[in-house]
Computed example of a mutant assay.
Amino acid sequence: MQVLAIYSESGGVTKTTTAVSLAVIAARGGRKVTLLDLDPRAATTKWARVVPEEDHLHVGAILAYDDCEGYAEELGIVVPAWSENIRVIPAARSMSNREAEYADGAEYRLKTSLVGLESDLVVIDCPNRQGGPLIKGALTAADSIVYASRLSEDGVDGVEGARQTVSQFKKNLARIGATHTLDELGVIAGDIDDRVVGTPAVERIAFDDLKQTGLLLTPMVPKRTIVQQARIAGEWYGDYPSGHKVLDAYTELSKKVIR
């Protein structure tokens, strides 16, 4: 089972779109997928229109207890509009309380909850945090990571900050002799306005900065209004002809980051 974290330390850089897109594409391709919303803003949860049977049955239930083995299997909610193969574990605003959680071993709870999970792929939509308990939990659970970005100053800053956090996470593990593989698979740049004649200077600079990381993946994902419209409606943009260029780009990218 691959556990893939989607991360940036900036908001509004297509992180949720990337997480949902990779998850749905994998699910529609036949894989069993769990999409885990770890962001208290709950963008993935809102898009999927998932509502727990009881208020407390969200990711916060995992983060609150050391003895949470198997919780991920129990908390997933199927999203038939996307695929019968995909389940979403919802987030809630109250998860922000976990940012103050520094109990010993708290960073292992998310990983523990995945034990026994019947999925081929887990995609974690991370919060745009600079470290902290939620991010530590995501990085401990994940075996691979993709950075999401726009061609903007915020997009580049979000990737740079996230990579620094990942680097520090790895160093901390190395200091205590812990073995953990966390592969940086690349940067996915989304919401690119390919209909504009000429490339604005800010986007050129951002592109060069991301390319210098050696992680920028292609193709870059074009901007289409149907994506935002589908999010608002709780639908899958790939079901509409106007979303096919976005779908095609993410489909090609999925081949590079999903095992």
Rank of each mutant, 00 (worst) to 15 (best):
D39W: 02
L57V: 11
Y108A: 14
R175V: 04
G11K: 07
A72N: 04
E53Y: 15
S83L: 03
E69P: 07
T45E: 00
R204M: 13
I226N: 09
E69K: 11
F169K: 11
G155L: 01
E54H: 12
G161Y: 10
K46C: 03
K32H: 02
A103Y: 05
T18P: 00
K245H: 11
N85G: 14
D154S: 09
V156L: 06
G186H: 08
V227N: 08
A174V: 10
E99G: 02
W82V: 14
C68M: 01
E118H: 09
E73S: 08
E69W: 06
A48R: 00
A61V: 10
Y71C: 06
T199P: 06
I205E: 14
V221W: 03
H56P: 01
V88S: 04
G158C: 02
E107Q: 12
I89T: 05
G132F: 08
N172F: 03
A26K: 06
P52W: 05
R28C: 02
D37I: 03
K256S: 14
L217R: 12
R98D: 09
A64Q: 07
G161W: 05
L182Y: 05
V33Q: 09
G11W: 06
V59E: 01
I86K: 01
E101G: 07
T112M: 12
G131R: 12
L134A: 02
V79F: 04
R31Q: 02
L75T: 10
H244Y: 11
V122A: 13
N128H: 15
G105H: 02
L22D: 01
L117S: 01
A249N: 04
P222R: 05
D143V: 06
N172Y: 09
E84P: 08
T14H: 02
G238S: 09
S167K: 07
A178C: 07
K46D: 13
V115P: 01
S144A: 11
L63E: 00
V51I: 15
P127T: 12
P222L: 11
L215A: 11
T179P: 06
M95F: 09
T218W: 13
L114V: 08
T213C: 05
N172Q: 11
A64S: 08
G158N: 00
L114G: 12
G30Q: 00
S254G: 13
L121K: 04
E74T: 15
L217C: 10
T251S: 09
I77F: 02
A249P: 04
D193R: 10
D239V: 07
G131A: 02
A162E: 01
E101T: 09
T165Q: 11
L210N: 08
M95P: 00
S21D: 08
N172W: 00
A206M: 02
K256M: 15
L215C: 09
L182I: 07
T14K: 08
W82D: 13
R195A: 15
A189K: 03
K32I: 05
I89E: 00
N97P: 10
E54W: 15
V156Q: 04
T179K: 14
R231E: 14
A178Y: 00
A201D: 09
T45P: 01
S113L: 00
K255A: 03
S8F: 08
V197R: 15
L4P: 05
